[in-house]
Design a protein around this nucleic acid. Structure first.
Lengths: 155, 155
DNA sequence: ATGAGTGCAAAGTGTTTGCAACTAT
DNA sequence: ATAGTTGCAAACACTTTGCACTCAT
């Protein structure tokens, strides 16, 4: 019944004098079993299966805590609730992109913002946190098709 | 009582068979007089001075419309309400950064995401809309000071 | 034993909606 | 004339908070 995530969480909590509770264990369990980007509400529902007494407010409080511990990443899509997922085993966060047409969330290759981060730091003193960035645009599937016959001209 | 913005708005509306109303004129007027990044609520309050009958819901509807017309840019900070501002006279949108400590919004140099956009398009087919991106990080003022005497050691 | 953490319900924040009345065209 | 817009109030979606109680340490 153990897991690398649980060991990591236990460590992080004990280091800070905080406690390992059923709510926290249950939220971690859900995040470990679900790969995608989950809303707090979805996590509430999934937690309810294993731990029916865990309240919605505790899930929010737990997700806030896990974010502060850098155990989960969260992002704010342009519409709708925040999305959460576990940071990978090496503590490596990644950048997200959201399609403004279909809403799909895409995980981007790590390091895609490294050059921008370096330039920002040098030019403006701004220290970019790439793991909390959501880029916006159109995914491949949602792009308008190029017209088939070459340059488009009005009749 | 005219302005480049008003002319532009009138054109955009008439082209699409939509109407120039007092609510729309008033919202445009506020955006033209205020340089910064305004919340819908702030715009409601400012509009109330010149046009007391314009309702909060109409301001939201107008801001949605202006966004669709690409007359205003809006961004969603990680906490709190959306922020709006007029796109510059040349229709040029820019990228924003938000300090996760003090909340300050910084306008970034144009083109800062051009390379990323090109790479994204080539590698993943994602067409980036840089004008709707908010980068997250720490502004210069909020960064932890480097310790003055070299490596920091506990006494 | 003790205070960090919880369940609960209620309030909060920001935005959207249904509809009758109004008004720019 | 008539369809696009509006004001209004209520609903909505999501999150946060105050408080008494509980339980991990």
């Amino acid at each position: 019944m153990s897991s690398p995530g649980l060991d990591r969480l236990t460590d992080l909590l004990h280091t800070r004098g905080e406690r390992l509770t059923p709510a926290r264990t249950a939220v971690l369990g859900v995040l470990e079993q679900q790969a995608g980007h989950l809303t707090a509400e979805e996590i509430v529902d999934l937690v309810a299966v294993a731990a029916p007494d865990v309240h919605r407010a505790s899930v929010h409080r737990t997700l806030d805590l896990f974010s502060r511990l850098r155990l989960v990443q969260h992002l704010h899509p342009s519409h709708g609730p925040a999305l959460y997922h576990l940071v990978d085993g090496h503590g490596h966060e990644h950048v997200h992109a959201e399609c403004r047409s279909c809403g799909r969330i895409i995980d981007l290759p790590d390091g895609i913002l490294d050059d921008v981060a370096a330039r920002l730091l040098a030019e403006t003193g701004f220290d970019l946190h790439a793991g909390h960035v959501t880029l916006s645009g159109l995914c491949r599937a949602c792009q308008p098709e190029p017209s088939g016959t070459g340059t488009s001209v009005q009749p």
